[in-house]
């Protein structure tokens, strides 16, 4: 068995893991963002991402019937398409906040957990009911041309696009959090809500911005899910929700950087357990056992901060 070199087994698996990791990471960053700023676990994050995938498909269908794809140059309608999906996801993010989180601001943190699980079911079933033949598997349109750089199957346009998009999106999130005033306000709120409010930060607008940002991020995750697998089903969101949440927990739930490490780690565990003989049946189980081990041994996550509760 050729292990190294171009097109070899190990390199191919490494690429599989990175691609899977990119998708988990984006969903996990969504989770961390919400948890970091508002201390809530938004369980419908995976469903928002899949909603993004379906928005893209729906918009593409409309564009195609309206003749826009033939009329406009490809980059223009592609940007328009992404724009539509991003706006819809951001709106769904804000709706999530207004319907399932804000009403429970002062109640126990179990409430938003439950309400976002319920909202996830609503999103999933709404797609199933209202998208044309929504309950059947759907083919994602080929938005990224087939072919590859230099003829290497691993460097297909799709793979390279996915890695670049993930990298750029994460970079944008970091710059936003680090450099912009709103980003700083979000970080301040993550550190200490009451103090942030006293310092004159408008908590409401920061919360809404967080959900807009999260929605945008998840719409990109939705695009990547569609582009990478080529096929989606309305109920795929729960899978990505659980994987993204686990990745965020491993990395340190409130730490956005930890989510990247967590997402990659989870993907690497899954892929490398899968390649053992007969291992595929255990891939998810092993990945979740790893999550449990992390929760027991390092509950704050890889990059999380230790919280000391004073009694």
């Amino acid at each position: 068995m050729e292990l190294l070199g171009n097109g070899s087994f190990l390199i191919e698996q490494l690429m599989n893991a990175i691609m899977l990791g990119c998708i988990y990471t984006l969903v996990a960053v969504g989770f961390s963002l919400f948890f970091g700023v508002l201390d809530v676990v938004v369980f419908c994050s995976g469903d928002i991402a899949v909603f993004g995938t379906f928005s893209l498909m729906g918009a593409y269908m409309i564009f195609e019937t309206a003749g826009l794809t033939a009329m406009l140059p490809t980059p223009v309608w592609m940007m328009l398409l992404m724009g539509v999906a991003a706006i819809l996801c951001a709106a769904l993010g804000v709706f999530t906040y207004l319907s399932s989180i804000r009403p429970f601001e002062k109640s126990s943190s179990l409430m938003p957990l439950l309400s976002t699980i319920a909202l996830g079911v609503v999103i999933r079933e709404t797609i199933g009911l209202f998208f044309p033949l929504g309950r059947n598997p759907q083919r994602f349109p080929r938005l990224i041309p087939s072919g590859s750089f230099g003829g290497h199957a691993l460097l297909s346009y799709r793979n390279v696009t996915i890695i670049c998009v993930t990298f750029l999106v994460l970079l944008a999130v970091f710059f936003f959090l680090r450099k912009s005033k709103m980003g700083n306000a979000m970080q301040a709120m993550a550190q200490n809500k009451r103090l942030a409010a006293i310092a004159g930060i408008n908590i409401r607008s920061v919360a809404i911005t967080t959900f807009v940002l999260g929605g945008l991020l998840l719409s990109v995750a939705g695009f990547l899910i569609g582009a990478y697998y080529g096929t989606v089903r309305f109920d795929n969101g729960s899978l990505y929700g659980i994987k993204g949440f686990s990745a965020a927990v491993v990395g340190g739930l409130s730490n956005v950087y930890g989510a990247i490490i967590g997402g990659m780690l989870l993907a690497f565990i899954e892929v490398f357990v899968s390649i053992l003989p007969g291992g595929a049946a255990y891939a998810s189980a092993v990945a979740f056992i790893a999550v449990v081990i992390f929760m027991v041994a390092k509950p704050e996550g890889i990059l999380g901060e230790k919280t000391v509760e004073k009694v």
Binding site: N16, E270, S274, I275, P277, S284
Partner: peptide, 22 residues
């Protein structure tokens, strides 16, 4: 040549398929 069983929610068969290819 080999057997792999996966949960029916699985979307990602790429790791298994790389193995199958070998």
């Amino acid at each position: 040549i080999g057997i792999d069983e996966v949960p029916d929610t699985q979307n990602d068969f790429r790791a298994i398929l790389s193995k199958v290819k070998q």
